[in-house]
Every structure is written in C-alpha cells, then in structure tokens.
C-alpha cells in the first residue's frame, strides 16, 4: 500500500503538479508500470519534509501526455527514460533526446513494456 497516492486524469496532471510546486514539494521521480492491459500506470513522486505525495495517471499506449519539465526542469531525464523504455508519448520535454538518451537505433522499442518481443528494430533495420 502506498500512502498519499492520488489518482488523477492525465488532463489534471499539469494543474496538480503546478499545485505541488506551489505548496513547496520537491520532485523525486516518476515510475512506470505496465499493467499488461495496454495501460501504463505512471506515478509521479513528490516529497516535502520527508513525506511523499504521489499522483498516478493511467496512460494508454497511444495517448499523449504533457511533460512536467516546464514546471520541474529536473524531470527531463526521467521523462526521456519513460519515453524510451516504456514508449510513452510525452510532449514538450525541455530537453528531448529524440529517443536516443538510452537506446540506439539498433535497440528494440520500449524494452521495459510487457508486450511480446516483435522482430522489428529501430531505424527500420
């Protein structure tokens, strides 16, 4: 059981994150978990005085979500990581590595998802 877990819609994300910043929360990180049903749980973790507040959104594999790096710049690395390892479609990341922060052209797409390995590699090879 995770304490202070708040489920929100992806449309509410930026508003809630802005509110967390206004209330003095530190951005800790975000975690993805593939539910195996085509939905990825994305949990954003924030800390204030050593207590966590967690926001969770459910994201379909085709959905686009907004980057929070405009509010918390330090989210750039984890958002690029989520984009590459889970194939999330995150728009407007402050520094977007274009899918090449961790992966090379020859690597499989979204290697941390539960989908079966498809023999199709990046770069059309």
């Amino acid at each position: 059981m995770i304490e202070n877990l708040i489920e929100i819609s992806k449309d509410e994300l930026l508003g809630e994150v802005q509110k967390a910043k206004y209330e003095g929360y530190r951005f800790v990180t975000a975690s993805c978990a593939d539910t195996g049903t085509g939905i990825i749980d994305v949990t954003y973790h924030f800390d204030k005085d050593l207590a966590l507040r967690n926001y969770r959104i459910k994201v379909g594999k085709e959905d686009e979500i907004s980057s929070i790096s405009g509010i918390y710049f330090c989210a750039v690395l984890v958002e690029n990581e989520m984009k590459e390892l889970f194939g999330l479609n995150i728009a407007n990341i402050a520094i977007d590595y274009g899918g090449h922060m961790l992966l090379a052209d020859v690597d499989f797409n979204a290697p941390l998802t539960r989908s079966q390995i498809v023999i199709e590699q990046r770069g059309g090879k």
Partner: peptide, 25 residues
C-alpha cells in the same frame, strides 16, 4: 525503490531512482 508485486514469485515492477540520477540536473 518502487515495488509492485502480484502474489507470485516474480515482481511485476521494480523501479529504482538512484541519487546520481537526481543530481545530474
């Protein structure tokens, strides 16, 4: 460490955010 388990011997997800990852920005 974010851990999600489903009652089997294998975890559904283990996520690790290390301190250097947080300090690079």
């Amino acid at each position: 460490y974010y851990i999600r388990a489903n009652g089997t011997k294998n975890l559904e997800r283990l996520r690790v955010r290390t301190p250097t990852f947080a300090n690079i920005p």
